[in-house]
Amino acid sequence: MRPFEYVSPTNKEQVATLLGEYGSILAGGTDLLALMKDDVVAPQRLVNIKHIDQLRGVTYQPGNGLRVGALTTIAEFAEDANVRRVYPVLADAAHEVASPQIRNLATIGGNMCQRPRCWYFRNGIGLMAKTPDGKSMVLEGDNRYAAILGNAGPAYFVSPSTLAPVLIALGAKIRLYSAKAAGSGVRELPLEEFFVIPKSEHELEHDLKPGEMVIEIVVPPPSQNLKAASYEVRQRAAFDWPLAQASAALEMDGSTVKSARVVLGHVAPIPWISPEAAQALVGKSISPETAMVAANAAVAQAKPLSHNKYKITLAKAAVKRAILGAAGQSTGGAA
């Protein structure tokens, strides 16, 4: 790690000033410190936000839904009584994140802001690594874990968050804050809009303006007829990055689907919403056959790179199983 200055403000109004041009926010630190050790990023100042109590707490109101302070750790989130009761799909997904040690440190805000695991990026070659003659290293090299959707380039990495697809399926919003922004300084976005596919090495994969920070995730109250599930295909039984993930939220009308949201994770540079899969479900009752039709629709536009065709199969299986899981049917899986 390179040397840096360290500050610990106690209110969020101070953060933007302290960040300046070359600072980074330190929350759980599980991703940032690793990036700094690998010299992928080298902030000149870390602004530790963990002493800002305004960013803590999980609250639930039946009318307004769930508000999750950015500093909530994944473990706190997974174990929160309201989350477990009202949004079991979220609690389950949070329980599967990384390892206990990571869940005890890492925060919800950090989970949204974590950087891609692309090995060219992590090995310091760049998020859009290029060969000396200007070709994409990911395309030319080993892309077994790279994107199959949203991969028109030059970004080929996959979005690393496993919570974001679930949250997006549930219609979550993200609240951002900067003391330097106009008005209240708060900006609220549908969570999916927070994730962007960067077009150049200098862009981030998040819509964070300079000085801005995540302060809260808001999840709307689930309707009585909502059924949701998430499925991760992981090579190891635990503590492994999913090779593909899908989250399904089905608004039911009796036994048929009134509306649906299907979001894929780890297959595109952003959490990938599949309106095609959702559309395929509307008006249908859930069965392995209808789930498969939706799964096929979800990957209809997928484009394999030289080494990742298998991820299309995995994405399909994840979508199918998430849908069946949401409907409370056997997924037939889980070897």
Binding site: G29, L33, N48, Q101, L105
Partner: peptide, 27 residues
Amino acid sequence: CDRGVCGACTVLMDGKTVYACAVLAID
């Protein structure tokens, strides 16, 4: 591993397990 993966540096911080390599001493 020094990257918050292997668990060999596990300690308790306020009673909870954490990777000591993923925490700054000053923090």
